[in-house]
């Protein structure tokens, strides 16, 4: 048991790289709405290197899952609820996301520059 704990601990330590990027005191809030199984807006512009908070409001009557492989996030947002997602400072680039429960219509991207 101990050996396995040490093994897992060693593995985790071996992948932690560098320090955490500095966070601004008051990160900006960016609203994202889910309505009719679509994201609004479908394109979100953010400043690279600054963390922010994504406030996702699900106005549909059914749950949706905000999923982004690029951001490694999978969060279910129940019907009628709002979720505050603290996003880390992003490097320049485009980060795609989808609504996993309605993939044909719910998609968007965050562009950091």
């Amino acid at each position: 048991m101990l050996r396995r704990g040490v093994l897992v601990g060693a593995l985790i330590l071996s992948v932690v790289a560098g320090g955490t990027p500095a966070r601004s005191a008051d990160p900006p809030e960016i609203p994202l709405t889910i309505e009719n199984h679509r994201f609004t807006p479908e394109e979100i512009m953010v400043t690279a290197g600054t963390s922010f908070v994504l406030v996702i409001t699900n106005k549909d009557a059914t749950p949706e899952e905000f999923e982004s492989h690029d951001l490694r996030i999978e969060k279910v947002i129940p019907a009628g609820k709002a979720l505050r997602l603290r996003m880390p400072a992003l490097k320049k680039g485009t980060y795609n996301f989808i609504g996993d429960f309605n993939q044909s219509t719910a998609k968007g991207r965050i562009i950091a520059e």
């Binding site: 955490t20 490694r72 880390p88 490097k91 989808i98």
Partner: peptide
């Protein structure tokens, strides 16, 4: 480990490679 990055307990980093043209993970 990826989820730890997603929730901010590990720092985010850039992709090491991109094999979407070989096998798209979507």
């Amino acid at each position: 480990v990826g989820r730890l990055q997603g929730i901010g307990w590990l720092p985010m980093s850039e992709p090491l490679w991109d094999t979407s043209h070989i096998l798209n993970d979507h």
